[in-house]
């Protein structure tokens, strides 16, 4: 059973996001980068499959040299090897352009399952897994919370979170599965794991190695473009709702939640 986990390096979710004064991007200097939390579920699941069926787990990660730290995190957890896609041409790509490069890299890898996080917590797109499946001609199931691979490894039964319940699906393998919270509890790498990770193979591939054209990836290969970044409207300081007793305050609260917060 071979799995490939597509991993993205993202700023930690607690990061303070500062936008460049001209709105052309965010300031990345002070950001602490980590593995996308949803991708960790994929790594953990890949390791579980490996423990149960044997085979290998591979990380596929696109990004500049700083992503090596994130790749090592996965290797420390127990992933066997990693492929890093590093080329300036990959930069600035949207989900489509990114998936295109990933798909190309995947053609050179062996897999029965490809895991992607259900979304990356930086761009919050929730697209790459599905597009990847399409480009590779594979089925996909998004938002999985449970995975049982059949003994013949030709299919799997997954629990998938949908509105109002859990859908239990059978999917033919190979397939792309996007992982949701609840699938598992990602392990904490042991220290020997961390040490071993430093010696595990990391295959760095650039545009030429993938045999792709610079026009089909990165910014040039993208179908969407971010034209401007803006800060969200300043969240008003907490409001204490004034009023004479619950008969006044409760309706006010309901109204605010409905009209201002729009959460009801």
């Amino acid at each position: 059973m071979n799995s490939v986990v597509c991993v993205k390096q993202v700023p930690d979710t607690e990061s303070v996001i500062k936008i460049k004064p001209d709105g052309s991007g965010i300031i990345t200097d002070d950001l602490k980068f980590v593995m996308n939390p949803y991708d960790e579920y994929g790594v953990e699941e890949a390791l579980k499959l490996k423990e149960k069926f044997g085979g290998s787990a591979t990380i596929l990660c696109m990004g500049p040299s700083r992503v090596v730290e994130t790749i090592r995190t996965g290797l420390a957890m127990g992933v066997d090897k990693a492929v890093q896609l590093d080329d300036p041409a990959f930069e600035g790509g949207d989900a489509f352009a990114t998936a295109k490069a990933l798909a190309e890299a995947l053609k050179g890898l062996e897999y029965d399952v490809i895991f992607c996080g259900k979304q990356a917590v930086d761009d919050d797109l929730s697209q790459v897994g599905q597009i990847l499946a399409e480009l590779l001609g594979l089925p996909h199931v998004s938002l999985i919370q449970k995975l049982q691979v059949a003994d013949d490894k030709k299919s799997a039964v997954v629990d998938r979170q949908v509105e109002g319940g859990i859908e239990v699906l059978k999917v033919l393998l190979p397939a792309v599965l996007t992982t949701q919270k609840g699938l598992n509890e990602p392990r904490y790498a042991s220290l020997p794991g961390i040490m071993k990770a430093k010696k595990k193979p990391l295959d760095v591939k650039d545009l030429a190695a993938l045999g792709l054209n610079a026009d089909s990836v990165g910014c040039n290969g993208s179908k969407t473009m971010i034209t401007k970044y803006t800060a969200p409207p300043e969240r008003a300081a907490g409001k204490i709702i004034e009023g004479e007793g619950p008969q006044e305050t409760a309706p006010k609260l309901v109204q605010l939640l409905r009209e201002e917060a729009k959460v009801i």
Binding site: T13, D122, S222, T224, T227, T230, A231, P232
Partner: peptide
């Protein structure tokens, strides 16, 4: 078509434009 969408769990908003396809 142009759209506005949040990123970083709503810590930033982005304006998006489209190119290179008939349908957006």
């Amino acid at each position: 078509l142009t759209v506005t969408r949040p990123m970083f769990a709503g810590k930033a908003y982005t304006d998006i434009s489209f190119s290179g396809s008939k349908t957006n």
